[in-house]
C-alpha cells in the first residue's frame, strides 16, 4: 500500500499527541489533580492511530478503560478530555464519567468502558444500526487480550458474524490482563486464531508498527463497508506503564520491559520518517513542541474550569 509523506507525518502527530497527553495525565495524577483511576496508553499509540486513520466522523468506535488514545485518534477534543479527567463540569461528561467513561457520541465515540469486554456487544449494536439504516459506516471495537476471554467476546463475535455486521474487532494484545500474562490466561499464542471459530477473517500484526496496523485495518474496514462482514485484527503491543497509575508492574520482568521499550512505536516511526527523508530531526521536534503546547493549553483549560455543582448529582439520570 502506498502511503504518502503527509499520511505518515499525520500518524506521527497523532501518536505524539497521545503520548504527550498520557505523560501529562501521569504527572497530573501523581500531583493529585486527577481523582480515581488512570490507565495509560503509553506504548500502544500505533494501534489507535493506525486503525482510526481509516475512519470518518460517521463511523463508530467502542473503547476501553485504557481509552485516551482511541479518543484522540478518533478526533476527540483534548481540552474536553483533560477537563473530564479532572472531573470538571466543562469536561466531556460534565464530570460524571471520568477517565473510564469519556465519550463523544457526535463523533461516533460510544465511550470508554469500565467493564472489560462490555464494548464488544455494544459495537455489534452500533454496526447493526449502520446496516439497518443501509449506510456504509462501520464500527471498530477496541479491546484487550484479557477481554478476549470474556463471554461477551464469544457472543458478540458470533452475533456479528451471523448478522454479517460491519464491525472490526481490534484486539490490543499488550500481553497482560492486569498482572496475568497471556500464557497464563489462554492457551493460544495468536488471539486472531479465535476468529476462525466465528467464520470471520483474523490477522495478527505488529501493533507497534503503525503502517502494519493501518494496512490491516484498511482491509477490514473496506470489507465492512462493502457489506462483507466483520473481521478481527490482533495488534501485538506493550504497555510501558502499570495497569493503572500506581501499579509498579512487579509481574513483568525487567528484561521483557527493556526489550519492548526498544520497540517503542514512536521511535520506530521516527526512524522511518528520517530514513525516508520525510522529515528532519528539527521538524519532528517541532511536531512534539506543538503537541506539548496543545496539551498545556488543555491543562490550563481544565484547571481553570469550574467543578460541577452538588445539585448536578441528579441530572441526566433519565432523558426527558
Amino acid at each position: 500500500m502506498e502511503v504518502t509523506k503527509e499520511t505518515l507525518l499525520g500518524f506521527y502527530e497523532t501518536m505524539v499527541t497521545i503520548r504527550t497527553f498520557e505523560e501529562k495525565a501521569m504527572e497530573l495524577f501523581a500531583a493529585g489533580y486527577i481523582p480515581g483511576f488512570v490507565h495509560l496508553y503509553i506504548g500502544e499509540e500505533a494501534v489507535a492511530t493506525g486503525v482510526c486513520a481509516n475512519l470518518t466522523e460517521r463511523d463508530f468506535i467502542t473503547s476501553t478503560h485504557r481509552g485516551h488514545g482511541h479518543l484522540i485518534a478518533k478526533g476527540g477534543k483534548i481540552d474536553l478530555m483533560m477537563a473530564e479527567l479532572m472531573g470538571k463540569v466543562t469536561g466531556y461528561c460534565k464530570g460524571k464519567g471520568g477517565s473510564m467513561h469519556i465519550a463523544d457520541v457526535d463523533l461516533g465515540i460510544l465511550g470508554a468502558n469500565g467493564i472489560v469486554g462490555a464494548g464488544q456487544p455494544i459495537a455489534a449494536g452500533a454496526a447493526f444500526a449502520c446496516k439497518y439504516k443501509k449506510e456504509d459506516n462501520v464500527c471498530v471495537c477496541f479491546f484487550g487480550d484479557g477481554a478476549s476471554n470474556r463471554g461477551t467476546f464469544h457472543e458478540a463475535l458470533n452475533l456479528a458474524s451471523v448478522f454479517n455486521l460491519p464491525v472490526i474487532y481490534v484486539c490490543e494484545n499488550n500481553l497482560y490482563g492486569i498482572s496475568n500474562c497471556q500464557r497464563d490466561h489462554m492457551n493460544v499464542s495468536d488471539i486472531s486464531d479465535r476468529a476462525a471459530s466465528y467464520g470471520i477473517p483474523g490477522v495478527s500484526v505488529d501493533g507497534n508498527d503503525v503502517m502494519a496496523v493501518y494496512e490491516a485495518a484498511a482491509e477490514a474496514v473496506k470489507r465492512a463497508r462493502k457489506g462483507e462482514g466483520p473481521s478481527m485484527i490482533e495488534c501485538k503491543t506493550w504497555r510501558h506503564r502499570g495497569h493503572f497509575e500506581g501499579d509498579p508492574g512487579i509481574y513483568k520482568s525487567a528484561k521483557e520491559q527493556e526489550a519492548w521499550i526498544k520497540k517503542d512505536p514512536i521511535i520506530k516511526l521516527e526512524k522511518k520518517l528520517l530514513e525516508y527523508e520525510y522529515a528532519s530531526e528539527d521538524e519532528l521536534n517541532a511536531i512534539k513542541d506543538t503537541a506539548k503546547e496543545r496539551i498545556e493549553a488543555a491543562v490550563e483549560f481544565a484547571k481553570n474550569s469550574p467543578d460541577p455543582e452538588p445539585e448536578d448529582v441528579l441530572r441526566d439520570v433519565y432523558a426527558d
Binding site: 455489534a124 447493526f128 444500526a129 458470533n158
Partner: peptide, 22 residues
Amino acid sequence: IDTPITETAIIGHAVGAAASGL
C-alpha cells in the same frame, strides 16, 4: 430478528443500536 441463544449480545447489541439512533 431471530438471534442466537445469546442474552448478553441481545441486550448489549441493543445498547449500541439504541445509542446509534434505533
